[in-house]
Design a protein around this nucleic acid. Sequence first.
DNA 1: CCTTTTCGAGAGCAGTGCTCTCACTTGGGA
DNA 2: TCCCAAGTGAGAGCACTGCTCTCGAAAAGG
Lengths: 229, 229
Amino acid sequence: MPAVHRTARERARAEVTAAIKDEARTQLAKVGAEALSLRAVARQLGMVSSALYRYFPCKDDLLTALIIDAYNSLGAAAEAAAGTETRPRARWRATCHAIRAWARANPHEYSLIFGSPIPGYAAPADTITPASRVPLALIAVVTDAVEQDLISSPPAALSAELEAQAADIATRFAPGVPSPVLARLFVAWSQLFGMLSFELTGQFTNSLEPADAFFGYAVDEMAAFVGLG
Amino acid sequence: MPAVHRTARERARAEVTAAIKDEARTQLAKVGAEALSLRAVARQLGMVSSALYRYFPCKDDLLTALIIDAYNSLGAAAEAAAGTETRPRARWRATCHAIRAWARANPHEYSLIFGSPIPGYAAPADTITPASRVPLALIAVVTDAVEQDLISSPPAALSAELEAQAADIATRFAPGVPSPVLARLFVAWSQLFGMLSFELTGQFTNSLEPADAFFGYAVDEMAAFVGLG
DNA sequence: CCTTTTCGAGAGCAGTGCTCTCACTTGGGA
DNA sequence: TCCCAAGTGAGAGCACTGCTCTCGAAAAGG
């Protein structure tokens, strides 16, 4: 997407595309993904519904675009937070809290990306890079901690199958990180998002709500679990 | 819901209600919650769509009924698995693996209850009891372990706010369980479902898939984290 | 037997995703 | 400079949805 567009038509197209996504995002925040209506978006923009199909061939394409933007928005928030601290434990905390803040500020976009896709659904290739920004941000915290020798010694060995998977991931994304640490990082990663999903879906109602204290506790416990000093 | 119905009309109504839910469940498994159509369900049952509204006043009511059934089905699976073992660690393992097996066998029902949070959505009161069966099953494992003194000594103290919340939960549902253990149990609970959601939504693709090894590892690590012997 | 409740059928309404055709504008090559 | 192809918006239309309403038939109960 070049910053400057050669022709007026290209510029107009980019502007209309952005306007559609913006309006769709506000509709999303208002009525949720389920009730998002292309016709309503077009109506709000003063265009007729069929014109909108020039920009997004079908509703799923619009949703995919919103999903990519959401992944990037969340990923950017996580990366920015990770950049504000230097010591591993503080970086971990900052990253996790930024992720929670983003999720609470954008619950509909959160559920758009972490909600319920159908099992047969294949994520478009365009989404996998944005989707990996958060896990990569968490991996970066651990990788840097390993390099600075600010991580405690790895726990017990893994099973052969998991060891192979973790080693493969390590060579691709986390050079130098011992497999057991990486496995624990994946546990912490899934704990983080499980906890966030529970909070947003109201599973903590009448027990851990408000969830601030529990969230802070869990983040610290998971940091220790991974071994971050 | 009495086992025997006084009048033929009541029996017929119960049968039709069950038939609607059954057909809705198969449609759910086929096309997902998003595309579930009352008209299609009615059509498949050979009735006209307006007749279906005699049984479920609106689509949400049908979905709520399906949600309650799903919670009960999952809860029953968890409770049954917990009953097959005696030692805490084995009970924990069995329960977690039964939950995963249920989730993989009923992915659409899983995403119906754990997917897409709707911020404005208030869970109907009828759902909270079925929804608490799984957490209560996990709490039971820990409670029994405490009673049998098969749990390791509690870790460090909690913050005042979390301590209060945990103590309140303990008095209501987990008498005798130390607050720090309960807090860690909630961490493990959210980890379990975060991991399952990740597996079902394909977030492990190209990394931890197949997730069997990782799941077994995480379940054991979380059992140790909670302190189950 | 007769009244009240329950139920299915059908028509209908407003809304949806999406397609198609028809004009109009724009941009680049001849 | 003209001209044709591509891009774009408007409108009608199709098949579908959730849901409401009315009407007639059947069942339940006094």
